[in-house]
Amino acid sequence: MKQLFILLMLFVSVKGECLSEPNTQKPIVVAASSSLPPYVIQDTNSGIQLEILKAAFKSQGITNIDIHYMSNKRAEQQLMQGKVDIALNFPPVLTPHVYKSDELLRYQNVAVSLANKELKINSIYDLAGKSVLAFQNATNFIEAPFKSVTNILRSYEEVVNQEAQVDHLMKGWVDVIILERRVFLYYLEKYKQSAEVKPFIVHAIFKEAPRPAFFYSKTLKNTFNLGLGEIIESGEYQAIIRLDGTEYAQLSEPELRE
């Protein structure tokens, strides 16, 4: 009888531990853009946004993160169907079964033109009559009246590969490109390695855009928010923002503390 009692107590103890600890065996599936450095860098599974996400979950004892790279539109569909747990980019609309986390960081979308064209762009309306190349799904991410203004442009296209935006601008194939400021600077540095960079003007005509992560599970969202708060308090968040995502991913924990 005594042995049976001991076995029963062991069973209850083990079961209690399983219920109280987060399930780290099943991977958390994250949908991320395939081309958004320095925020997301597919080649190294790193980048500012991914490192913030991983660090926040790690502080909660969760390390099994599975990143799937896809377009913003596909990520939106996959999240709404529950095929992924998290989407890093999602249009700012109210959708059932999609829960918005606290703010990871802020994007600053900008319009960029070549200086020799002498374009006066002080507002979204000043884009009228110009050829514009924007990032994919820009009309759903950029605030009004951008979407309506696209109807009065000389031409308007969106691309997944944002490296092509810098190339098209420098070759004079379009009047204006629209993309996030850090993304532009990242691809500009890359472009400099093989081609001449012409003088350009950055037109800050859009508002800063808070960027949360979007979750299919409210519980998982709450877990992430706790972790995000912890890494902000510890200073780890500031280290990620300060460094390129690849550089941060290569640092060891002792180096982070120095």
Rank of each mutant, 00 (worst) to 15 (best):
S71Y: 06
V160P: 00
Q60G: 00
K54L: 09
I205W: 08
E233N: 09
A87C: 00
V29C: 07
P210G: 12
K2Q: 03
E208A: 14
L169K: 01
L8H: 01
E208S: 12
S131G: 04
Y191C: 07
M9E: 03
F141P: 01
S35R: 11
V14N: 08
P92R: 14
A204S: 09
Y107F: 12
S194K: 08
L104Y: 00
A55R: 00
N140W: 08
A195L: 07
V12G: 13
L119A: 07
V12N: 15
T63Q: 15
G129Q: 07
G47W: 02
E118M: 06
H97W: 10
S59Y: 05
T246E: 03
A128R: 15
T24Y: 01
L94Y: 09
E253W: 04
E17N: 02
V29G: 06
S217H: 11
A195W: 00
L53P: 03
K190I: 05
F5V: 10
E157A: 06
E118H: 12
Y156L: 08
G16D: 03
V98I: 14
G61W: 04
S101D: 03
G245D: 11
W173C: 07
A56L: 09
Q136E: 13
N151G: 13
K73C: 12
I142W: 00
L220R: 08
P38R: 04
A56E: 08
P254G: 05
S252I: 14
V174C: 01
E236K: 15
W173Q: 13
V183N: 07
S20K: 13
N89R: 01
P38A: 08
N161L: 12
P254C: 04
K58D: 09
A209W: 00
L94K: 15
A195R: 06
E247G: 07
G172V: 07
Y99V: 02
F57T: 00
Q3M: 05
L127F: 14
L53Q: 10
E189P: 02
G245L: 01
D43E: 15
E51V: 10
A55N: 11
I121R: 12
F214H: 03
P212S: 11
L243Y: 08
N151L: 13
Y39E: 09
H203Q: 10
V159P: 03
E255W: 02
K83M: 07
Q250W: 00
E258F: 12
H168D: 15
I152Y: 15
V14H: 05
K171Y: 02
A115F: 11
S194C: 05
V12M: 11
Y39W: 10
L105C: 01
A128K: 15
S252G: 12
F206I: 13
V112T: 11
K58N: 13
L185Q: 15
